[in-house]
Amino acid sequence: MDNITPQTGHRHYGMVAYDQAGKPICHVCGRSFNALLTHVRHVHKMEPRAYKLTYGLNVTKGILSEKTQSKLKAAVSKNLEVVLENLSRGVRYQEGHQGRTRDKLSEQGRQRLIQYNKERHPKQNPTP
């Protein structure tokens, strides 16, 4: 019995299929990518969580090619102490990044961030 996606008829409902190069295949368009969820967000305008729920995938796991996973693991290993420290503080780390404080954020950037948060979390931002 095939695992058929109810909404689209895709044959890999509930699982991620990979091409011969080890890249995950998109349930929507059938193309493969190193970072599938980035493709889903930008091309199909679908949030990763919604994509995973639609296609019966684990919402707590990323969907990356083996090559990309290896690169990320190497970066974490190289910077393990900093990564662990930042995780304990709830901060993500990017090598060489100084961080952005409110005084460094432009007014336009601040307004975009406010709008983004309102759209992403409407219940937390009730309208008067």
Rank of each mutant, 00 (worst) to 15 (best):
M1Y: 08
M1D: 13
M1R: 14
M1L: 07
D2S: 12
D2I: 15
D2W: 09
N3T: 12
N3Y: 09
T5F: 01
P6D: 04
Q7S: 15
T8N: 04
G9F: 06
H10P: 05
H10D: 13
H10C: 11
R11H: 10
R11P: 15
H12K: 14
M15P: 02
D19A: 07
Q20K: 15
A21T: 13
G22S: 05
G22Y: 02
K23L: 06
I25V: 15
H27N: 08
H27P: 01
G30I: 02
G30E: 05
R31S: 09
F33P: 04
F33M: 06
F33W: 07
N34S: 09
A35Q: 09
A35F: 03
L37W: 05
L37M: 11
H39M: 00
H39C: 03
H44I: 06
K45F: 04
E47Y: 09
P48D: 01
A50H: 03
Y51M: 02
K52W: 04
K52I: 07
T54L: 10
Y55P: 01
Y55G: 00
G56N: 00
G56K: 05
L57H: 06
N58R: 13
V59G: 06
T60K: 15
K61C: 13
G62F: 11
G62D: 15
I63V: 12
I63T: 00
I63P: 00
I63N: 01
I63Y: 03
L64G: 03
S65Y: 02
S65W: 04
S65K: 02
S65P: 08
E66C: 07
T68D: 12
T68A: 13
Q69T: 14
Q69V: 08
S70F: 02
S70N: 12
S70R: 13
K71I: 14
K71M: 08
L72I: 15
A75H: 10
S77Q: 14
K78F: 01
N79L: 04
N79A: 00
E81H: 05
E81K: 13
E81M: 05
V82N: 04
L84N: 09
L87E: 13
R89V: 00
G90D: 10
G90E: 07
G90W: 03
R92V: 11
R92T: 11
R92I: 10
G96S: 03
G96P: 04
G96V: 01
Q98K: 15
G99S: 08
G99D: 03
R100G: 07
T101C: 09
T101A: 11
R102H: 10
R102S: 10
R102G: 10
K104C: 06
K104E: 14
L105N: 03
E107G: 02
E107N: 11
Q108R: 14
G109H: 01
G109E: 15
R110A: 13
R110V: 04
Q111I: 09
Q111H: 07
Q111M: 12
L113A: 13
Y116G: 07
Y116M: 08
Y116D: 09
N117K: 12
K118G: 02
K118L: 08
R120Q: 12
R120P: 02
R120F: 04
H121I: 07
P122E: 04
P122N: 05
P122Q: 06
P122H: 00
K123N: 02
Q124G: 01
P126T: 07
T127E: 15
T127I: 13
